[in-house]
């Protein structure tokens, strides 16, 4: 394993922010795994650190194929982590809506431009990120509909779901969108947690990456075949919004199968404790996304459901 400097951001009074890549194997730049860009994505940071640990062990066992190189970038925004900020720098900007960047513009676009130049040399880019919302979701691979997305390849991670999303204008500045081209494929992996560490979810994410690398002939590794992924379009998920705001008491978990009419959550009046709203399932299906904060606004997304999908 080699540690390489990918980008250095200078600050007058802080240590330089060094973005480092952990490189395994040599030769063809096959897969680049990119860690969190927001400073509250602790789970994603942990997954990448454990992936570096695992690949270090595997490299010693000689499992990386000849002429194949893998790079893991565990974190691209250490400044934010160290100050418990979500975004980058004094302007509080989201790195993952600033790609592909350049070498002449604002600090953030120089950072993304510098990183993108290195990442784009790889055939497969796998990013660990999370939703902005305070929520949990079922582990899945997400692809942006760019015209180059290859769902069959996304299936090779063996995660339960592959979700394809039509890009909004802001999505066109994500790493995933810009890495999805004629010559490279981009996958974003969403795991259940974000701000909490979840060991089971970490192991599942590492297995998914190793499974993909094995199936692409980048490593030689025996692993469980995983799932044959259920492929969804993002717009096919059924959104369940709250009608009332208050204290949120969820009754179901992500990944759980619910039946029509089943109670999914209560919204409680924060002053007198009365129940303001009972959220009940409007359809049979799987809970794909679930709000997991104690408070909730009116018309906030409480759940996203995979309609009429059974266990």
């Amino acid at each position: 394993m080699q540690i390489v400097d990918l980008y250095s951001f200078k600050s007058i009074y802080r240590d330089d922010m060094q973005v480092k890549g952990y490189v395994f194997g040599s030769g063809e730049k096959s897969a680049c795994i990119v860690g969190p860009s927001r400073g509250n994505e602790y789970q994603q940071l942990y997954i990448c650190s454990q992936l570096v640990k695992k690949l270090t062990e595997l490299e010693k066992l000689g499992v990386i194929a000849n002429d194949k190189q893998i790079m893991v970038i565990p974190c691209i925004n250490e400044y934010a982590f160290n100050l418990s900020k979500d975004f980058f720098g004094v302007k509080n900007l989201d790195i993952n809506t600033s790609f592909p960047g350049n070498d002449y513009g604002e600090p953030i676009t120089r950072l993304t431009g510098g990183l993108f130049e290195k990442i784009k040399e790889y055939t497969y880019e796998i990013q660990f990120t999370s939703f902005y919302e305070r929520a949990q979701c079922v582990p899945h691979v997400r692809m942006t509909e760019t015209g180059y997305q290859n769902v069959s390849l996304a299936n090779l991670f063996g995660l339960p779901y592959v979700v394809v999303k039509k890009p909004l204008p802001t999505d066109t500045a994500t790493l995933n969108y810009n890495m999805s081209t004629e010559t490279s494929s981009a996958f974003t992996i969403y795991t259940k947690a974000k701000e909490q560490l979840d060991e089971k979810c970490t192991n599942s994410a590492i297995s998914a990456v190793l499974r993909f690398l094995t199936r692409m002939g980048i490593i030689k590794y025996e692993c469980h075949s995983g799932y044959i992924s259920h492929v969804l379009k993002d717009e096919d998920l059924t959104d369940v919004y709250t009608e009332k705001a208050g204290i949120f008491k969820g009754k179901v978990e992500c990944g759980e199968y619910v039946q029509y009419g089943q109670k999914m959550a209560e919204i409680i009046n924060p002053f007198d404790g009365s129940v303001l709203e009972e959220i009940v399932a409007s359809t049979d299906g799987i809970v794909f996304f679930a709000h997991n904060s104690a408070l909730i606004n009116q018309y906030e997304t409480a759940f996203r459901m995979v309609h009429r999908l059974h266990d």
Binding site: K244, G246, P270, F271, L295, I296, N297, Q298, Y299
Partner: peptide, 11 residues
Amino acid sequence: EYELPVGEKLT
């Protein structure tokens, strides 16, 4: 105008 969790509204 929308409700917020603890008493206030977004207006």
